[in-house]
Nucleic acid binder design. Structure first.
Lengths: 225, 225
DNA sequence: CCAAAAGTGTTGATATTACACCCATGA
DNA sequence: TCATGGGTGTAATATCAACACTTTTGG
């Protein structure tokens, strides 16, 4: 039988899939690993958690280091715990997904970091492709069920920005006319009075109206499947 | 700085919130703890994971031991990782929630186990109340967004059974007429031809039609918030 | 016949969908 | 003036919610 101390042999890590929206496209933050055993492989940003460090604290520290800010939406997903997922010993990975407006990043990206298009994720180290798959699933569900778009749009955005994000996330074509009307009707979005000029007719700029969401606690009692 | 080996000091545990439906009510399985430091306290069934044991394997072993079966729906939720959540050292807890038809339990319950009404959970050891809260949230969301009811109904059930579950889970009164029609329309449910007699008019017995769900992969592209 | 629980029908209100159409800009 | 993207209007259809009504049992 195992002695008591033999249960205390595992390590912990945090990894995050951070998503942003930049010049009309969705991106995931990836990091080239430096340390053995996966030098030069690509993976999700992450770190080993110190023995007395809280998971959130470790994550905040990491993000501050990498991006100069740790003030963004994030949510813990599953733990990845397979005995042999890491070659150096058992390391349980606590995975997160996060959303950040591109403009909020406070530091120039280190050369080890890169934003990869969400629809074209390369092969990653360890089980990180599996983690990314889970992250993308949750990302999509979040878009459908919560006003998560606003977590990674800039302060001011157009309805077309929103539509672009949904179209990419779901690889589908949306009827802009109807979708836009739904958003407006929801009151989640308030016109700022400003406009963005590009080509064609200038687009109204909106901002997120958080209070309109807070006052809707009621989960409707009908099947949604 | 930490030496490498100092990262490998943590333990892992699995805990599960198993929900069932028995004589018209929802219950959660709880276990009286035997081992130090929480003797006689109540908590979620769980165990420490062995150094070379996969998390799922540990959970399966536990459930087989407790209930005589490990064949039921379950899903991993967050990890609970606070440094001091366990008094004997850092133990990260991988939490699950599960659903089982009461009839599928193969063993008489040990005296350490009990089914507690879902709406009246007592004070639990460690951070288990917090875990239960998360489990109940996911349980409710699962009921709204997926055909999870069928995971813990018996093979044959009535529409009223379904309605009872939803009413309890959401502490609300449902219009049985409309709700029943929605269920029927969904084709998720097929009449067996049998009836259950009780008081009043006998109720048609149905069974779950899994295939009707599988062929609906399409997440509708509209806001649901 | 009555009470109780199951199940059906109807209807007005609301939401969704598919488009046609108009608007404001730069080149 | 045209191309381009932004934005409004409308009408057919589908869905929802409320609730009256009917059916089938046991006592």
């Amino acid at each position: 039988m195992f002695e008591f101390k033999h249960f205390f042999r595992g390590a912990y890590s945090v990894n995050i899939g951070l998503i942003t929206f930049k010049s009309g496209k969705l991106f995931l933050l990836l990091q080239q690993k430096e340390e053995y055993p996966s030098q030069n492989e690509i993976g999700l940003p992450g770190k080993i958690i110190l023995p007395n460090e809280e998971t959130e604290a470790a994550l905040k520290k990491l993000m501050l280091e990498l991006l100069g800010t740790n003030d963004f939406y994030r949510k813990q997903l599953n733990a990845f715990t397979a005995v042999n997922r890491h070659p150096l010993g058992r390391v349980a990975c606590f995975s997160y997904y996060g959303l950040i407006p591109f403009q909020n990043i406070q530091k120039p990206l280190s050369s080890k970091l890169s934003w990869e298009p969400l629809n074209n994720i390369p092969n990653l180290c360890y089980d990180h492709n599996q983690i990314v798959e889970m992250i993308l699933n949750r990302f999509r569900k979040g878009l459908l069920r919560h006003p998560r778009v606003f977590e990674f749009l800039p302060d001011q955005f157009t309805i077309t920005d929103i539509i672009t994000i949904y179209e990419q996330a779901f690889s589908t074509k949306i009827d802009a006319s109807n979708f836009g009307k739904q958003i407006l009707k929801s009151d989640l979005v308030m016109p700022t009075g400003a406009y963005r000029k590009d080509s064609g007719r200038p687009a109204k700029l909106y901002e997120f109206n958080k209070s309109a969401y807070i006052k809707k606690p009621k989960d409707k009692m009908h099947f949604n499947f």
